[in-house]
Design a protein around this nucleic acid. Structure first.
Length: 972
RNA sequence: GGGUCGGUAGCUCAGGUGGUUAGAGCACACGCCUGAUAAGCGUGAGGUCGGCGGUUCGAGUCCGCCCCGACCCA
C-alpha cells in the first residue's frame, strides 16, 4: 500500500491503528444484565468462588433478614446492594468472603394476611386447628421468599441463594427454642405485665404499626385528690389537682406524678359561685403556669397564691383516691395513692400533675416499674373493655361498645366523681388519638400478663461476663468488642441500652416459635408466685421434637403430656402457649447461621442495616448473645440512612414520590442503581429521583466510554509488546504512579466501607487523568506510530495494566459492566471478572518525585492550552495541531523538566519552542502559574495527511509527498 | 414533645486542631474537533457555606437560639 499513490488528500485512514472494539458505547443494561445473571448461574459463580477461596482468611457479613412479605422497595435495594459491595470488595481484596442471605418469616403481618383471607371467606380463625393455620402462614412466607429472592438476584447481589437461611426452617425453630430455654434456665425470664395498645372491638393487642391516628373528641376532667399525709406539712389540708382526657382510668388510679422541674404553688379559692364544685376556702396544689387556666375552668372567681411548693413537699406524700371511703365503694379504693416524680410531666397542658394508672399507660407503667411498685398493677378492665366484676359499681360498664361507639364508663365515672365532690371541672377536647387501622375504632391501653427478660439481674454463667447483668454486659461489649461505623452509631446504641426497659418476649399470637416452657402458679401469703419448670430432660425432648417437626410440635395434640412424660407432677404444670417476639427469632440468627452452619464464623465480621435497627436487630442480637455467650455476635456494625425523595422528604405512596427499584432496573439497569448507591453518602439519608438517576446515568456513560477506549486501544495486544516500566516514557511512568497511589486508596477505602470515596477517586482518575490527558495525548502514538514503536508499546502495556486494575477495582460496584468489559477482552465460558482479585501493584511504581514534576508539567500545559484557546477564539486555528507555540519558563528546573519530555506532544501541538525567561507583555500567562508564559505561533509547513501534524517535513519525504517523516517511514 | 443525626454551587460530594479571592466531578452555556462520533477536547458562568446572634484581629470551620429534614421514642 505504500507505493501506489502520492496524490494529495489521499485517505490514509486504513493505515492507522484506530481503536477497535465490539464493546458498545451504550450498555443496554436492562436487556443485557439478565444474560450475565444467567451466565453466573450456569457457571455457579458463588460455589466456584468458595472453592477458589479455600484457605483464604474468612470474612463473613451476616445478613439481617428482611421480612418475607411484599415486593422489594428502595430501602431493601439499598441495604442488599451495600451488603453486596462489602461482600464483593472483601473478595477482590483476597478474603474468603461468604454471604448467606436470610429471611424473617414469623410474625403478625403474615398472620394478618391469612386472617384476612379467612374473614373474606367468613371463616373464624379460632375454628381452624392452629397447626393448619400455621401451615398457611408458612406457605405464604415461602411464596414471598421466592419472589424476593429473584428480585434480590436481579440487583446483582451474589450469595448462597440456593441455600439461604430462614427463621421458619425446622432447624432454625429448634435453635430459637434452644436459645429461649437458656433464658428459662438462667433465670432471666419472668412473668409480669405491661400495658399494650388494645382494641376492645377486635379483642386483641395491636402493634404500633397497626395503629393509625385520627382526631377524636374526648371528655376532660379536673379532679381533686385529697392529701392524706405529707412529709413537710406544706400540703396539709390541701388537694392535688389532676387533669385527664380518659375519665375511665380513674378507677384504676394508683398514683399522681409531678414534674421535678416545674414550679408549683398552693392556691386558695377566695371567691366562687354558691353552687360551684369547688368552694371558697379550698386549697389547691397547681403548677404556676397552669393555675389560672385550671381555676378559671373550675369557675373560681378569685384566688390567692399562698406559697411555693417544691419537690420536697411532694416526695413521699400520700393522697387519697377520689372514691376513697365513698359509701358505695366497698372500701375498694381505700389504698394509698403515692406522689411520684415523673420526668414526663410537663406544664404545657393540664395542671402540672398527672394521675397514674399503671395498667393503662406506658409512662405510668414505667414509672411504677422504676419505683418497684408493679405489684400495684390493676386488672380492672376486661378484653371487651368492660370493668371486671370485682370493681364496685362500675362492673360490666364498657369503655367502648362492640360497634366502636363510646360506652357508659366515662359518664359513670364523671357522675361518681361529682357525687364524691372531687370533680372540679369538665370539658371537651379534640385531639389526635390512636385507632385500629382495621376496625377504625379507638383503642385503649390495657395491661396484660406478659413474659419478660430482666435487664438488671445478674447472670451467673460460664461466660467471660459472668456476674454482670444483661444491661451491663451489653454496654461493656459494645464499648470494647465492636467497631461502629459511623462512630455515632455507638452513642446511639449506648443511649438505648442504658434506658431500655425489660424485654417483653411474649405475644398472644399463633405464627411463630412458642415460649416453649411450663409454669405453675402458687399463692404465698396472698401473693401469686409464678414458677418455671427447669428440667433439662424436658428441654431435650422439646428440642428434639422441634428439630424434626418444627415448632408445630408444641401445638400438636398431647404435646404437654409428651414433653412432661415421666414427671410425677406433670399435672401441676401449665403449658405456656404465647409466641416469641419475632425480634427474638432474628436476635438468634447468629446462633443458627453463624454458629450452626459450616460456612459461618462467630462472631460475624459485620452486621449492616439501616439506623432503625439500633432499636431492632442490632439490639435483639446484642442482648440475646450477651445473655447467652457474654458478648455481641458481631465484630463490626455498619449503619446506613434512609432513602428520601429528590427534595429530601420521605417517600410515600400517597404523595406519589416513591422510586421502585424494579422500575430503575427496567429503565436504566441495576448497575445504574448500584452506581447511585456508590455515589451517595449512605451513612446519612440519601435522596433519589428521576433527575438524580439521570445524572448517575450520565456519569456512567462517561466512565463507560473511557473503558471502551481502553478496550479499543488494546485490540490485538500481545505479550511480546510488553515494556518494562523502567523503559517507558515519563508519561507512562506518571500513569503508573497514579495507579499505585489509587491502589492504596481503593484498598483502604474498601476496608473502611468508603465506597463513595473509592468510586469518586477512580472516576476522577478516569475522566481527569485518562480521558482528558493521557488518552488525548497518546491518540497520536496509538494511531500513527508503527507497532514496533516503544512509545506505542509502552502505552499499550499501560493500557493492559489499567484494564486489570480498573475492572477489578470497579467489579464490587459495577458488577455487570465490569463483567461486560472483562468478557469483551477475555471471552470464554469459564471467564469472569468476579473470579479475580485486585492484582498486586508494585511499590516501585510509586515515584513521588516524578509525580511532583508532572504536577508542574501539567500546570505549564494549562498555560499553553490557554494561549491556544485565545487563538481559537480569534479564529486563527481550530485544532491544536495547527499551532507551534513558544513557551518561556523562568524556573530553570521546570525548563529542564519540560525539555526532558516531548512537551509539544504533551500539549498536542505540532511543534513547540522552549525558551528561558519571562515578562513578555504579548505572551499569555495564568496568575496561578507564575513564571510560565506562552506565545501563540502558527505551525509552519504542510499538514500530514495521515497524522494531521503540521510540519515542514511534509513534501520532503521519499515515498509520500503528503506525509511527515514518521508516517512516511511507518508506511514504508 | 424528647433523644440522635444532618442541612456547602442545579445534582453528588471535598473542605485535620478557625487564617489569603470556598474546591472537584457531573449537568449547563459557549467554542473546537469530526480517525473514541447519540463520543472526545477546551473555556466559562454558577455558592447570603439553612437563618439569626455571639466569641475572635479573623468562622463554612467554635458557642447559643431558631428554621427545615430524617430516624427512634413519646
Amino acid at each position: 500500500m505504500t507505493s501506489e499513490t502520492k496524490a494529495p488528500n489521499h485517505d490514509y485512514k486504513d493505515t492507522l491503528f484506530l481503536p477497535e472494539t465490539e464493546f458498545p458505547m451504550r450498555g443496554g443494561l436492562p436487556q443485557r444484565e439478565p444474560e450475565w445473571l444467567a451466565r453466573w448461574e450456569k457457571m455457579d459463580l458463588y460455589k466456584r468462588l468458595r472453592e477458589l477461596s479455600k484457605g483464604r482468611q474468612p470474612w463473613v457479613l451476616h445478613d439481617g433478614p428482611p421480612y418475607a412479605n411484599g415486593h422489594l422497595h428502595i430501602g431493601h435495594a439499598l441495604n442488599k446492594t451495600l451488603k453486596d459491595f462489602v461482600v464483593r470488595s472483601r473478595q477482590v481484596l483476597g478474603y474468603d468472603s461468604r454471604y448467606v442471605p436470610g429471611w424473617d418469616c414469623h410474625g403478625l403481618p403474615i398472620e394478618w394476611k391469612i386472617e384476612e383471607k379467612y374473614r373474606e371467606k367468613k371463616l373464624d380463625k379460632s375454628a381452624v386447628p392452629i397447626n393448619e393455620f400455621r401451615q398457611e402462614c408458612r406457605d405464604f412466607a415461602a411464596g414471598w421468599i421466592d419472589v424476593q429472592r429473584e428480585e434480590f438476584k436481579r440487583l446483582g447481589v451474589i450469595g448462597d441463594w440456593d441455600d439461604p437461611y430462614t427463621t421458619m426452617k425446622f432447624s432454625a425453630e429448634a435453635t430459637i427454642a434452644r436459645e429461649f430455654l437458656k433464658f428459662v434456665m438462667n433465670g432471666l425470664l419472668y412473668r409480669g405485665s405491661k400495658p399494650v395498645m388494645w382494641s376492645p372491638v377486635e379483642k386483641t393487642a395491636l402493634a404500633d404499626a397497626e395503629v393509625e391516628y385520627h382526631d377524636r373528641v374526648s371528655p376532660t376532667i379536673h379532679v381533686r385528690f385529697p392529701v392524706v399525709s405529707a412529709p413537710t406539712g406544706a400540703l396539709s389540708g390541701a388537694d392535688v389537682v389532676i387533669w385527664t382526657t380518659t375519665p375511665w382510668t380513674i378507677p384504676s388510679n394508683r398514683g399522681v406524678s409531678y414534674g421535678p422541674e416545674i414550679n408549683y404553688g398552693l392556691y386558695e379559692v377566695t371567691e366562687a359561685p354558691e353552687d360551684n364544685w369547688v368552694k371558697v376556702g379550698a386549697k389547691l396544689a397547681l403548677a404556676d403556669d397552669l393555675a389560672e387556666d385550671a381555676l378559671t375552668a373550675a369557675r373560681v372567681g378569685e384566688w390567692r397564691r399562698l406559697y411555693d411548693l417544691t419537690p420536697a413537699d411532694f416526695e413521699g406524700a400520700i393522697l387519697g383516691h377520689p372514691f376513697r371511703g365513698e359509701p358505695w365503694a366497698e372500701r375498694f379504693w381505700d389504698y394509698e395513692v403515692p406522689m411520684l416524680a415523673g420526668g414526663f410531666v410537663t406544664s404545657d397542658a393540664g395542671t402540672g400533675f398527672v394521675h397514674n394508672a399503671p395498667s393503662h399507660g406506658e409512662e405510668d407503667f414505667e414509672l411504677f416499674a422504676e419505683n418497684k411498685m408493679l405489684d400495684r398493677i390493676t386488672y380492672n378492665v376486661l378484653e371487651d373493655s368492660a370493668f371486671a366484676p370485682h370493681v364496685p359499681f362500675f362492673a360490666g360498664l364498657r369503655i367502648l361498645e362492640p360497634n366502636g361507639k363510646d360506652g357508659k364508663a366515662n359518664d359513670a365515672v364523671l357522675e361518681k366523681l361529682a357525687e364524691s365532690g372531687k370533680l372540679m371541672a369538665r370539658g371537651r377536647i379534640k385531639h389526635s388519638y390512636p385507632h385500629s387501622w382495621r376496625s377504625k375504632a379507638p383503642v385503649i391501653y390495657r395491661n396484660t400478663p406478659q413474659w419478660f427478660v430482666a435487664m438488671d439481674q445478674a447472670i451467673h454463667d460460664a461466660t467471660p461476663q459472668a456476674g454482670l447483668t444483661l444491661r451491663q454486659r451489653a454496654l461493656k461489649t459494645i464499648a470494647e468488642d465492636v467497631q461502629w461505623t459511623p462512630k455515632s452509631a455507638y452513642n446511639r446504641m449506648r443511649g438505648m441500652i442504658e434506658t431500655r426497659p425489660d424485654w417483653v418476649l411474649s405475644r398472644q399470637r399463633a405464627w411463630g416459635v412458642p415460649l416453649c416452657c411450663f409454669m405453675r402458679e402458687s399463692v404465698v401469703e396472698g401473693v401469686v408466685k409464678v414458677e418455671l419448670l427447669r428440667d433439662e430432660a424436658v428441654n431435650a425432648r422439646i428440642l428434639a421434637a422441634f428439630e424434626v417437626e418444627g415448632a408445630d410440635a408444641w401445638f400438636a395434640e398431647g404435646a404437654a403430656a409428651r414433653f412432661l412424660a415421666g414427671r410425677p407432677d406433670a399435672d401441676q404444670w401449665t403449658q405456656v402457649v404465647d409466641i416469641l417476639d419475632v425480634w427474638f427469632d432474628s436476635g438468634s440468627t447468629h446462633a443458627f447461621v453463624m454458629e450452626d452452619r459450616p460456612d459461618g464464623i462467630w462472631p460475624a465480621s459485620l452486621y449492616l442495616e439501616g439506623t432503625d435497627q439500633h432499636r431492632g436487630w442490632f439490639q435483639s442480637s446484642l442482648l440475646e448473645a450477651s445473655a447467652t455467650r457474654g458478648r455481641a455476635p458481631y465484630e463490626g456494625v455498619l449503619t446506613h440512612g434512609f432513602t428520601l425523595d429528590e427534595k429530601g422528604q420521605k417517600m410515600s405512596k400517597s404523595v406519589g414520590n416513591t422510586v421502585a427499584p424494579q422500575n430503575v432496573i427496567k429503565d436504566l439497569g441495576a448497575d445504574i442503581l448500584r452506581l447511585w448507591i456508590a455515589q451517595t453518602d449512605f451513612t446519612e439519608d440519601q435522596r433519589i429521583g428521576p433527575k438524580i438517576l439521570q445524572g448517575v446515568a450520565d456519569s456512567y456513560r462517561r466512565l463507560r466510554n473511557t473503558l471502551r477506549y481502553m478496550l479499543g486501544a488494546l485490540a490485538g495486544f500481545d505479550e511480546s509488546e510488553r515494556v518494562e516500566p523502567k523503559d517507558m516514557p515519563e508519561l507512562e511512568r506518571w500513569i503508573l504512579h497514579r495507579l499505585a497511589e489509587l491502589d492504596q486508596v481503593v484498598r483502604k477505602g474498601y476496608e473502611a466501607y468508603e465506597f463513595q470515596k473509592v468510586f469518586a477517586q477512580i472516576f476522577n482518575f478516569c475522566t481527569t487523568d485518562l480521558s482528558a490527558v493521557y488518552f488525548d495525548i497518546r491518540k497520536d502514538a496509538l494511531y500513527c506510530d508503527p507497532p514496533s514503536s516503544l512509545r506505542r508499546r509502552a502505552c499499550r502495556t499501560v493500557m493492559d495494566i489499567l484494564f486489570h486494575r480498573l475492572t477489578t477495582w470497579l467489579s464490587p460496584i459495577l458488577c455487570f459492566t465490569t463483567e461486560d468489559v472483562w468478557l469483551s477482552r477475555y471471552p470464554g465460558e469459564d471467564q469472569s471478572v468476579h473470579l479475580q482479585t485486585i492484582p498486586e501493584t508494585p511499590a516501585s511504581w510509586l515515584d513521588p518525585e516524578l509525580a511532583a514534576r508532572w504536577e508542574k508539567i501539567r500546570e505549564a500545559r494549562r498555560v499553553v492550552t490557554g494561549a491556544l484557546e485565545i487563538a481559537r477564539r480569534e479564529k486563527l486555528i481550530g485544532a491544536s495541531l495547527e499551532a507551534a507555540p513558544v513557551v518561556r519558563v523562568s524556573d530553570p528546573e521546570l525548563l529542564a523538566a519540560l525539555r526532558a519530555v516531548d512537551f509539544a506532544e504533551i500539549c498536542i501541538a505540532s511543534d513547540l519552542k522552549l525558551e528561558e525567561g519571562s515578562g513578555s507583555p504579548e505572551a499569555f500567562s495564568l496568575s496561578e502559574v507564575p513564571g510560565v508564559e506562552a506565545v501563540f505561533v502558527k505551525a509552519e509547513g504542510g499538514k500530514c495527511a495521515r497524522c494531521w501534524r503540521v510540519t515542514p517535513e511534509v513534501g520532503a519525504q521519499p515515498h509520500h509527498d503528503d506525509l511527515c517523516r514518521r508516517c512516511d517511514e511507518a508506511l514504508s
